[in-house]
């Protein structure tokens, strides 16, 4: 439903972050972009919601077409929610007010300056309920733990009522237990609602358990594409570029 067509990213200064790439993301599937830092995972995600324009090629969404035009990009963004690496919350606002930021795309400028409607607030609290944080809705956002703040990020994305979720290293700053909870909540919600999710990770184990499909990225190109079961040690080595002695694999 969403994909890149020969899209590449070259940053000013000439550094190529992504070589011309073709990839399609299927509806209702959870895809994990796996790879080391700087491999091009972020560039793919940032292409997919227009935070960087493609240097060549195009980003295409089914039903909208190429996202080059601002109006097409806005239509795409309204139904595409982003989960960020850091939680990106406004610390002094309540958790509820932060989740309401997800509703912005649906509001007129008048709604933006008026107090949020009861309907939108109920929807936001329901979104918090799905990550187990409804009881904290009226607490200040900076009073929550790192894992909780990151889950508020999921609730904020859900408040947007998206059909696509993009998540850029959502567990990079979390301890293992919080990461487990975060990905568990995200997977459950995506499966319940039939959402398309594209998530970048750099932990192989989490990717294996969480993904329907794994796309390995290295040096700005795709080096692996398949189901988690197909991601063997050889594939992992290809993605991470580990040079093992010839006998080491057989010995394991």
């Amino acid at each position: 439903m969403l994909g890149l067509q020969q899209a590449s990213v070259t940053y000013p200064g000439g550094r190529t972050a992504l070589t011309p790439t073709d990839i399609q993301f299927a509806e209702g599937q959870i895809t994990v972009l796996l790879g080391p830092s700087g491999a091009g995972k972020s560039s793919i995600l940032r292409l997919l919601n227009g935070l960087v324009p493609p240097s060549q090629g195009a980003v295409v969404r089914k039903g909208i077409g190429s996202l080059e035009q601002p109006l097409a990009m806005r239509a795409h963004r309204l139904s595409t929610a982003m989960i960020f690496q850091q939680h990106h919350l406004i610390g002094r606002l309540t958790v509820l007010d932060n989740v309401l930021l997800g509703r912005l795309g649906a509001w007129s400028w008048l709604q933006t300056i008026l107090p949020p409607s009861r309907r939108d607030r109920l929807l936001s609290i329901a979104a918090l309920d799905r990550v187990g944080l409804a009881a904290r809705a009226l607490d200040r956002a900076d009073g929550l733990s790192g894992g909780e703040q990151q889950r508020v990020g999921i609730a904020r994305a859900m408040a947007q009522r998206p059909s696509i979720i993009l998540a850029d290293e959502p567990i990079a700053s979390l301890d293992p237990a919080s990461a487990e909870r975060m990905l568990g909540d995200l997977r459950r919600i995506c499966c319940d609602d039939g959402l398309t999710a594209i998530v970048s990770l750099h932990q192989v184990e989490f990717a294996r358990r969480f993904a329907d499909r794994i796309v390995g990225v290295r040096h700005g190109g795709i080096v692996f594409d398949g189901p988690p079961a197909a991601l063997d040690d050889h594939a992992v080595d290809q993605i991470y570029g580990v040079e093992r002695p010839a006998g080491a694999l057989a010995a394991e």
């Binding site: 509820l96 607030r121 109920l122 609290i125 329901a126 309920d129 409804a134 809705a137 009226l138």
Partner: peptide
């Protein structure tokens, strides 16, 4: 129960607003 507590929460939010 969840619905009631959400309503109570909205009421509390209304008061602070």
């Amino acid at each position: 129960d969840a619905m009631i507590s959400h309503d109570a929460m909205i009421a509390r939010d209304d008061r602070s607003r």
